[in-house]
Structures are given as structure tokens and as C-alpha cells.
Design a protein around this nucleic acid. Structure first.
Lengths: 154, 154
DNA sequence: GTTTATGCAAACTATTTGCACTTTA
DNA sequence: TAAAGTGCAAATAGTTTGCATAAAC
């Protein structure tokens, strides 16, 4: 059976990009940190274990390439750092994010949720939606539970 | 009758911030470009007409201050530049954006549209929503009309 | 053997900060 | 006049680029 990494390799090939050890190592790091929101620097540090000679510029170039291939999505949560988020395989759209303003945690929402909103945008604004970015800022369940003084005793 | 700028001045005062000519000039520029999505550099260029001695650092400091006071919202459309967008007076939430991938135009949606989605997020993810960022990427009505070969004759 | 990719260092861009001086309240 | 704000220049941080070398196909 074909693995996720094999399919990404094929995508590289069909774009007539070469399959280098640096690219493969970078993809592996992303797959191993699917839940995280790594910056280029984060990826660089992690990928150095697998390919110690790699340069930061190569990481940037690879991440740009993977963004182009829609393997990852580039996102920015407001600190001036771009983060790279593996797109769920076969996902038509980018998933959504919950950023906690207390602890900084970033959680993901894979559910679409925007189907109706996009229909309205297409109809009322005559705008052909190709992709979206949706981020909620607020208090996550962990921080919510923490500050709550057990008012919900049964 | 009290004007928008007077109310913003009061907000500054009640935060015990001083009202300097540089700050007033910056606010005026933002008010005069309510529809735009100006970068700090853009604001700097425009504000120089009103206050030629102003420095770029002051513009950055003022924009940060206005963000804190929720007079403006800071947003990033993916080029590495922060843009500052005047919040509609009395608006509970930040408005949404339509970014055209053809021509780069940025249009605004003032309608909420996310009420239902936020209810779901609060209920199903136990996340207390305080604010959001929603941007659609796609083809705007202008570019859509341009490329369309008149297939919609009556 | 060509073309494409890499690593390094230098360049660039957006933003922040330190500090002496000025202004506001 | 005390506290806060300003302008300038230097520092910082993230990202990009030029180029000689190396690897993939």
C-alpha cells in the first residue's frame, strides 16, 4: 500500500521537481508533527536531526514548494512568523484554528463549518471562493476550566 | 454633535494616553482611508503631509496603541506586511475580507455571517470566542466579469 | 551531461528599541 | 515639572537571494 510520503513524492515528480534527501527529511518532519504549527526555524531545528548538513534557506525553499503543491498551508497568527500546517489529505479547504489568548495554544477544527457562509459570499458578493482562512481568538477549554471556580458541581 | 475623532480622543484620554499632534494626524489619516488596508509605511507616507516631522517609529507606536484600544485591527494577508484596518464604530467583531487572487483587491464584508459558526465552536469545542479573523481567497466580481465570455446573455 | 537543488553568506524588509530631547497635562 | 511621547539611528528578526559547488535524473 502506498504511504502518504510516497504520494507526496509523486506530487514532486509530476511537478518535475527533484527528490532530494533534504526535501524528504523536511516532509518527514512535517508528517511527524502534523498537529503542530511549526515555523521555518522550528522545521529547521527538527530536520537537522535527519539531515544535519541542511541549511535554513533550503528549508524555506522546500516549504515554499510544498505550499505551492498544497501539501502545506502557510499561516500567520499575528506574531510576525509564518507557520506551516500540513493539509489533511484530500481536504478541499484549509482547516480552521482556535488560538487561545491566555495560553497561546492553537487547536484545529477539521470540520468545514463554512459551507453556508461560502454560499452566501458567492451569491451576495459574486465572489468565487477558492480558499479561506478562519481563526478564532478566545479562551480554550483548558484555560476556561482552570479559571472556573467549580461552579458546575453536579 | 460629537465626531468620531472626538470619541477616539476620549478613548486615548481615558487610557491616560496623551493627545499629541502626531497621534491626531495618524487617526485622521486612518479615518480618511477607512476603506483601505494600509501598512505602517503607507500610513507614514500619508501622515507626513499633515505632520512632516513625524518618524516611522512613532507611526508604529501609534498603530500599536490604536490596536490595543480596538480602534483598528491589525491584519496580515500573507505578504509579510501588517495592515491596519479601522474597526466600524460599535462593531462587536472584526469584519471579514475577500482577497482576489487575480488582481489583489481586498473587499470588506461588514455582515456578521459567523453567528451560527461561533455558537457551534463555543458548544462543541468549549471555546469562548472573543474575536475572529476570516478571509476568503478567490476571484472577485470584477475579475470574474472580465474573464467571462458573455455566456449570460439574456 | 544538463538541469535543478544546496549551503553559505550577504542582502533585504518589516518592525522594535535605546536614548537624548521635547511635549503634554 | 513630572511623566509620557518623539525622532533618529542602530538593532533585531524573519525571509530571500547570488553564487559556486554538488546531486538528481
Amino acid at each position: 500500500m502506498e504511504s502518504r510520503i510516497d504520494r507526496i513524492k509523486k506530487q514532486l515528480h509530476s511537478g518535475s521537481y527533484k527528490l532530494t534527501p533534504q526535501r524528504e527529511a523536511t516532509v518527514r518532519v512535517l508528517l511527524e508533527h502534523e498537529e503542530d504549527h511549526l515555523s521555518a526555524e522550528d522545521v529547521f531545528m527538527l530536520v537537522k536531526d535527519k539531515a544535519p548538513e541542511i541549511g535554513l534557506a533550503t528549508v524555506y525553499r522546500t516549504l515554499e514548494l510544498l505550499t505551492e503543491l498544497k501539501v502545506v498551508d502557510k499561516i500567520n497568527f499575528g506574531d510576525g512568523v509564518s507557520r506551516y500546517d500540513l493539509r489533511k489529505e484530500g481536504a478541499a479547504h484549509f482547516h480552521h484554528h482556535l488560538v487561545c489568548i491566555e495560553c497561546g495554544a492553537v487547536d484545529e477544527i477539521q470540520e468545514d463549518l463554512l459551507e453556508d457562509v461560502e454560499k452566501i459570499v458567492e451569491r451576495d458578493w459574486n465572489f468565487k471562493v477558492k480558499d479561506h482562512r478562519l481563526t478564532f481568538h478566545g479562551i480554550c477549554w483548558r484555560c476556561h476550566d482552570k479559571t472556573e471556580d467549580k461552579s458546575e458541581n453536579e
